[in-house]
Design a protein around this nucleic acid. Structure first.
Lengths: 216, 216
DNA sequence: ATCAGCCAATAAGGTATCTTAAGAAATACC
DNA sequence: GGTATTTCTTAAGATACCTTATTGGCTGAT
């Protein structure tokens, strides 16, 4: 359905296994403390199954046409997930900054080629797990099924609010709402990326910003 | 945030407990066969914890300001979930027909007043579970955490596709896509409801339909 | 330090979608 | 089966948002 007009350059990224002397898994273990905290055996599984990756700005985690092999947790930096339409324009579906997740769920579970791209908008450190390893966690530990259910329910609620905004609010309202909800992202991202996320052109975002500057 | 201009009339609905002679739970047990099928003990829990409800057209499952007390499975009929904006206009966030779920997740889990309404657009038969009973299923049975995780992941993917459409496609494209994806719903629902779901006015949907009719 | 490639802002003209209003057709409910 | 209500269509004028083009500032790579 979606097609890319230009074949993009594939950029490689560094990879590093985790071990017990390596504390890189800490941010993820800490993150899970917000849900049902993990015991030692479960933390060991994290260390065994997750891999740290450093990704440079503009490098790709996933390219259209490839199978999405990883479920990625962002330790630092920021990713964007987007689709490319028939005119070659990018549409940002999601940003993922610190303590957030990014994957094309559909491609990841079905192991089918993805329609989407995931790209680093900042130098980014990830913790990644592969399909079979994640299934192993789900099957072997009730807690992982539980925690990931709760996590995705929260993300479902966020997405539903975004749908509501999209069908009921003007571009200006959506922009103000974005600023309130993600003040941190709003500072870090170029306006072109925010415009793409809101579903408007950068030019129109610029006029909205001018209008808000007068009002405020 | 969202306010209702007119205080709506509360309509009651019938309720009936399930027991082993009552086969009403069948559609739900059958539905779970699409995931990890339930064993006898788990089916018994369904029967114990879910309650059948019949709801007439235009009657409410949830009203703005109330806590959403139920997680509802649609056996037959159809529900709509919507928000009411500051001008009193309704915006359809979701339809739920046979073998689909409807609840305001945010209100349901946090047990806080909801901003949303859920209303039957057809005479509808539901199987409903309350907050504490669902938590009991989650805690006592790995399989329920697992199945509900998989279910909500699927619904997350659907919602994400809808977000992508909203930020990247014209109203005409979104309407055609809706017809393809939900041909069954498109036949059953009035165009006013579909327009509200697509985020356009019924008048504009009418001109889109005329334009598509010419094109053949 | 320089240069190419982003990025933001502005403006003019065009298109998509909304608002309001009204009549006709379909449908729910008694 | 008849009536009240909802729903669909049409149309004219208004507005939100887009397209194209230009300019200048900034940034990142060499």
């Amino acid at each position: 359905m979606l097609q890319q007009t230009v074949s993009p350059v594939i950029k490689l990224y560094s990879q590093k296994p985790l071990n017990s002397e390596n504390t890189s898994i800490q941010p993820l273990a800490k993150y899970f403390n917000n849900y049902f905290p993990l015991d030692n055996a479960e933390c060991d599984e994290l260390m065994l199954r997750f891999t740290e990756r450093k990704v440079k700005r503009r490098h790709f985690i996933l390219q259209q046409g490839d199978v999405c092999r990883h479920f990625s947790f962002v330790v630092s930096g920021c990713l964007k997930m987007y689709a490319i339409d028939k005119n070659g324009k990018e549409h940002n579906i999601q940003f993922a900054a610190e303590n957030d997740w990014s994957t094309d769920l559909s491609s990841f579970y079905a192991e089918k080629p993805s329609q989407l791209c995931i790209e680093a908008v900042e130098p980014t450190i990830l913790l990644q797990i592969k399909h079979d390893d994640l299934l192993h966690l789900y099957t072997g530990y009730h807690k992982f099924d539980h925690n990931f259910r709760v996590i995705i329910e929260q993300k479902y609620i966020e997405l539903q609010n975004r749908v509501l905004q999209a069908i009921s609010s003007s571009a200006e309202e959506r922009y103000e709402s974005f600023l309130k909800q993600y003040p941190n992202l709003a500072n870090r991202l170029p306006n072109t990326q925010i415009a793409s996320y809101l579903g408007i052109t950068p030019e129109f975002l610029s006029t909205i910003r001018k209008s808000l500057a007068y009002k405020g």
